[in-house]
Design a protein around this nucleic acid. Structure first.
Lengths: 329, 329
DNA sequence: CTGAAAGCGCTAACAA
DNA sequence: TTGTTAGCGCTTTCAG
């Protein structure tokens, strides 16, 4: 900056003003400075700027696992929502590990992000990391929430999603002829918790199998059903990846979807519609959710860590497709 | 830091030494400082540290699109490879847009990352962004390369991958009975380019259909084939997402895979194996690739922008699955 | 409208 | 081993 100032024959203060744009100054001088900066190939050091301004124009996003298509899709959409703002979103994967998650939090707050969005890896285990974050920066729990944390929350109404599923089932499935089975996720995250809860409310007497949020678990669960000689059922999965795992295992053993097994997912990830038949699933309103995040962060910029906490839940919708169609009642 | 120093009755320099760990100091004092820092809830400001040290312990990763399972999987693995190091990886999605890509580059170099890994969005369009990056920081092009850029490159040997495909086809497919069709990607990225090239070398007279790297394109291409009354073919796709799109469209119209249509993918993304039948595909050696990235960055830390450029290509492998099995010659 | 100067938080010489 | 001090690059009062 010193060099640019010298080259343009002005002070560094003027260079700063010319480059950051805000302050009033003569267009002629600004022009000269911009030219000088250009010819010298000068690039502002955002570290210096941030140190002085106490604002980095960045927000951190911590996800449990970028290999999970739902989380990576969320990451994509968060970035897109912040596009029009002057804030950059950086994503960090915790690799489903609480230590890595903490490292991410510490790194982001150390780097003074203006906001931190976190999809907690674990319903209880993440508590301490989230506390750490929320002490230093406006923090938003996203998609999943650790109960009784003093942060914002943005997510979807999972119980309502399960209600949509139960309506669909009551309308189109003959429960007397076919068992109903929940291939769910163990309630170690709030979304798993709420979906299990929603299912149980709707179908208190139906069987529930619980594992991790993974395709492998879906495959394993389906194999177990087949080993038990189950040849027909309606499977409600806690996530699309689980549903896809189930379908794969069933179809590999020659069972038909939806004739033998209906399969219903949750999330609405893109690949769910590439399966054959494509998946009936509860789509989370991702755009609405990420818009809420943007709003909360922009607000937080003014209010700081002190502002009133908000909890925003958007309603999902049911997409009826071939894996559980609206016919043969 | 000042407060911590006062509370522990030492100088800020001592606080710094206690917290950064490196310099020799009496364990007793260190203990006292750590205690003081703890009780005051002090967190280092990494911006200040970086400004002084001229090192941020961070690398940026720019991907075209986090919604593409292949890119998000790469992002996940890059982060994992850097786990043992003290460097944090931050991912930024360019949203398949050259302006967003430039914004990402500017943001990362402005924030003084120690290294920048970029999957270019476009074979030519990204050139200027990559130049921008490589002027300020050690830059690695990943997975795709813009030709004649003065940066490192890490990727996979796409031509060799296509050779594996052609061997598989020659061994197991009767080309006289079934047309061979390449549902590829237009050569706007080097990987698309090289795969097309590899296919053309092996099968100069086969039909080639080119579009974007997306499932929709795969679906569209398959529909077109069906409209043309093609009822049987071996489809080589330029990417798994394209292959999955093809399979979906074919199966939706009642065609069978692999009996009517063989389908072969490229990349080896996780969801490819959840399709039914699961996809025969060329798996990119992701772990080896991200390990190379780590090495190049660690080297670059010492050598800086001046070091000799390296180009590393790892060999992929063919995974034979149900969508194009090794039978019926 | 522009310049001089202080200082954001930290670390590395250098001195003690 | 510890303290003093300068300064990383930037912006923003405060004067002029």
């Amino acid at each position: 900056m010193h060099d640019v100032a010298a080259h343009a024959g002005v002070s560094t203060a003027t260079v700063s003003r010319a480059l950051s744009g805000q302050r009033p100054m003569s267009p002629e001088l600004r022009e000269r400075v911009l030219l000088a900066a250009n010819t010298l190939g000068y690039r502002v050091n955002l570290l210096g700027r941030a140190l002085r301004r106490k604002r980095t124009s960045s927000v951190g996003l911590i996800v449990p696992d970028l290999d999970n298509p739902f989380f990576s899709s969320l990451a994509q959409h968060v970035g897109r929502s912040f596009g029009p703002s002057s804030i950059d979103v950086f994503t960090y994967s915790a690799d489903s590990d609480l230590d890595r998650e903490r490292r991410g939090v510490q790194s982001f707050i150390g780097r003074q992000v203006d906001g931190l969005v976190i999809i907690p890896s674990h319903e209880e285990g993440s508590a301490e990391n989230i506390t750490l974050a929320s002490e230093s920066v406006v923090t938003i729990q996203f998609d999943r929430r650790v109960p009784s944390m003093d942060t914002h929350f943005v997510g979807c109404d999972n119980r309502h999603g399960m209600k949509l599923v139960s309506t669909h089932i009551h309308d189109h499935v003959d429960l007397a002829r076919q068992p109903l089975i929940y291939v769910g996720a163990a309630p170690v995250s709030s979304s798993a918790h709420e979906r299990l809860d929603g299912f149980t409310k709707a179908f208190p007497h139906s069987r529930r199998m619980l594992g991790p949020f993974s395709a492998e678990w879906g495959q394993r669960a389906a194999m177990q059903l087949l080993e038990e000689e189950t040849r027909s059922a309606t499977i409600v999965a806690a996530a699309d990846v689980i549903a896809l795992g189930c379908m794969n295992a069933l179809q590999s053993r020659g069972l038909r979807v939806p004739e033998d097994f209906r399969v219903i997912g949750f999330d609405g990830v893109g690949v769910a519609f590439l399966a054959h038949p494509s998946l009936t699933t509860v789509r989370q309103p991702v755009e609405a959710m990420t818009t809420s995040i943007l709003e909360l962060i922009l607000n937080g910029l003014d209010e700081g860590v002190e502002g009133r906490r908000r909890s925003v839940r958007h309603k999902p919708e049911l997409l009826v497709n071939g894996s559980s169609p609206a016919r043969f009642v």
